[in-house]
Nucleic acid binder design. Structure first.
Length: 115
DNA sequence: CTCGTGACGGCGA
DNA sequence: ATCGCCGCCACGA
């Protein structure tokens, strides 16, 4: 697997991971950070997100509580609309642990194996 | 060059 | 169970 050279660019890694994120799933900053090899760098993911290219599905990144981050431009309304556009809509993530909407590290692993 | 801050989250008290 | 502190990488001043 191509895991060892993670530090080539945490940023790049995040971008790569986001491109692997299925359109019908959501993930958390923390999980994404963990996938990139830095379980405690969730914050960075958010920071990177805000800087990153807009061709990436940032709206499908949610915080641990299941809602979009506080500082998203336009507020949660925009986020919600984008999620609905992806046929996800509003979900009580917090309650049912994202149900099947959550994209977890093991899903990434599974994804890579299937490739 | 250094310093501070940030779309967050884990862990200790 | 809640509250608060620390950390992680990148980027702007």
């Amino acid at each position: 697997m191509d895991e060892p050279h993670i530090q080539k660019g945490f940023r790049e890694e995040i971008y790569k991971l986001m491109r692997l994120l299925p359109n019908d799933k959501v993930t958390t900053y923390g999980d994404l950070a963990a996938m990139a090899g830095q379980p405690r760098a969730a914050r960075i993911v958010g920071g990177i997100a805000h800087q990153g290219p807009d061709d990436l599905p940032w709206h499908r990144l949610v915080n641990r509580e299941g809602g979009l981050a506080i500082g998203f431009p336009g507020g949660q309304d925009v986020q919600l609309q984008l999620l609905q556009a992806d046929d996800i809509g509003c979900v009580d993530y917090k309650i049912d642990n994202f149900g099947e909407r959550r994209w977890r590290p093991q899903d990434l692993d599974l994804n890579l194996r299937l490739l």
